[in-house]
């Protein structure tokens, strides 16, 4: 019973997250300006981290947690570097 509840909840959550990632990809492709694309990329990173956590619940393996932590870390560094690039024209001065 609890396995069935969890199975369907995880499935629906994965579908919702996939739809969210599709929205972010559409904004990434059509975003009128560079900052819109960077924002969409940041959202995509966060959505991927959440999707990996849901995968971890689905498989019962705690290994996915570390992948999610890495993705959120890299997302922070990437977005900060891209914002610096938009602001100054170069990342490291």
């Amino acid at each position: 019973m609890s396995a069935a509840i969890l199975f369907w909840a995880v499935l629906v959550a994965q579908l919702l997250l996939a739809a969210a990632m599709c929205c972010a990809v559409v904004r990434l492709l059509q975003g009128p300006r560079a900052q819109d694309r960077v924002l969409a990329l940041d959202t995509l990173y966060v959505n991927a981290a959440i999707l990996l956590l849901v995968f971890g619940i689905r498989t019962g393996s705690p290994l996915y947690f570390e992948a999610a932590l890495l993705i959120s870390l890299l997302g922070f560094v990437a977005t900060a570097a891209l914002a610096k690039f938009l602001l100054r024209g170069e990342v490291i001065e």
Binding site: A9, A19, A20, C23, A24, N47, I50, V54
Partner: peptide
Amino acid sequence: LLLGAFLTLVGSIGL
């Protein structure tokens, strides 16, 4: 799980 996924979807639709 459903609440978290739904809120993420709402945020992305807003984007």
